[in-house]
């Protein structure tokens, strides 16, 4: 283009959208995250009630018991919008691919103590079904949640959970030497083995919860708050004595992902709790109800992997989760004694 205009001749007339300037109280440039999320969801003047739930509007804050004056206080510290999310996950996936290729090329799985390898398959592979349910739960939050800030992050988390389920599946194909046998065995365990039934019951019970914020607490805080620390902590460490390092290389991304996701879930819980005592009471109620269930559900899995030390590992995960909720001001410290 061959236009030399004086700079002042092309001065912007405004710096961002009006709805964002109203939030800032001033018209100043906004970030891509802010422009992509603030106030994007339609708020009023819906034309028809949903035929599948006529008691609600199409987007309706009353779909949860949590009450917020402004639903745009759930800022994602990662500031994910679609582009930054995908670029981040492409990189995360690449590091997993590199690890698996490294292990596969050198046939490192053959060097793992076979008993540990089988135990590893027994605890890791059924978890892909838990991830699949987590995916469905995130879709429900993206569907019925309120405000683009939380629903878009939930949609990304849902995509993460499908991706994690697929990564675990890929490990399963590797453990099955290129066949589905290990995945099929794991699914049979998931459906039938006693050790998995309390967890499967819990997961199916979550699938009929319609309060999306309750599901947020039940899945993303509580259930993830038990499973991820165990899988990436005590379970992983138990493999060290059995030359489990190649397997740890492949599951290392789980810990990275959980740390990343927790930055977001911490921010959400903190904001909801800071809003009101009423919210804090509801969050506490949900936390107690679902953590009691989760603790009971993971206990047999802890025992399967860690034997006599399983209970202590589960208790430690529960205690850490409770401390986290207290630090976010979502639980009273005195409840620790209970």
């Amino acid at each position: 283009m061959n236009i030399d205009l004086k700079a002042e001749a092309i001065t912007p007339r405004r710096h961002t959208f009006s709805h964002i300037a109203r939030r800032f109280g001033v018209d100043k440039p906004a970030s891509r995250y802010e422009e992509a999320t603030f106030d994007v969801q339609p708020m009023v003047n819906f034309h028809y009630r949903p035929t599948y739930s006529p008691q609600f509007e199409l987007y309706d804050a009353r779909r949860t018991r949590i009450v917020m004056n402004d639903w745009y206080v759930f800022r994602d510290p990662r500031q994910f919008y679609y582009a930054s999310y995908n670029i981040s996950r492409a990189a995360m996936q690449q590091s997993f691919d590199d690890a698996v290729n490294f292990v596969e090329k050198r046939d490192l799985i053959a060097s793992v103590d076979p008993a540990w390898r089988d135990l590893f398959a027994a605890w890791l592979l059924p978890l892909r079904h838990v991830e699949w349910a987590a995916n469905m739960n995130c879709q429900l939050i993206a569907d019925w949640g309120f405000g683009t800030q939380i629903t878009s992050a939930a949609a990304f988390c849902g995509a993460d959970r499908l991706g994690i389920a697929q990564v675990i599946s890929r490990i399963g194909l590797l453990l099955g030497q290129g066949t589905e046998s290990a995945l099929k065995d794991a699914k049979t365990q998931w459906l039938e083995a006693d050790v998995w039934q309390p967890l499967r019951r819990l997961v199916e019970d979550q699938l009929v919860v319609h309060d999306w914020f309750e599901l947020y607490v039940a899945q993303l805080i509580v259930l993830d708050g038990y499973i991820y620390p165990l899988a990436t902590g005590a379970f992983d460490r138990a493999g060290a004595a059995h030359n489990g390092a190649p397997l740890s290389m492949m599951t290392g991304f789980l810990g990275d992902w959980y740390a990343d996701n927790s930055r977001w879930t911490d921010a959400v819980i903190k904001a909801a709790a800071a809003e009101s005592d009423a919210n804090r009471i509801i969050l506490g109620e949900w936390f107690e109800r679902w953590s009691a269930r989760a603790e009971e559900a993971v206990r047999p899995i802890g025992a399967m992997v860690l034997g006599a030390e399983g209970d202590a590992a589960v208790d430690a995960a529960g205690a850490r989760l409770r401390e986290r909720m207290i630090a976010l001001n979502a639980l009273e410290a005195r409840e620790m004694a209970a």
Partner: peptide
């Protein structure tokens, strides 16, 4: 000798293989 999975089988394992019919609900 393990039979190599077709693309369709593989994709099935990555998607609908994750699903199960609920029995508790």
């Amino acid at each position: 000798t393990p039979r190599k999975m077709s693309l369709k089988q593989k994709y099935g394992a990555y998607t609908r293989g994750l699903d199960w019919k609920p029995t508790y609900q």
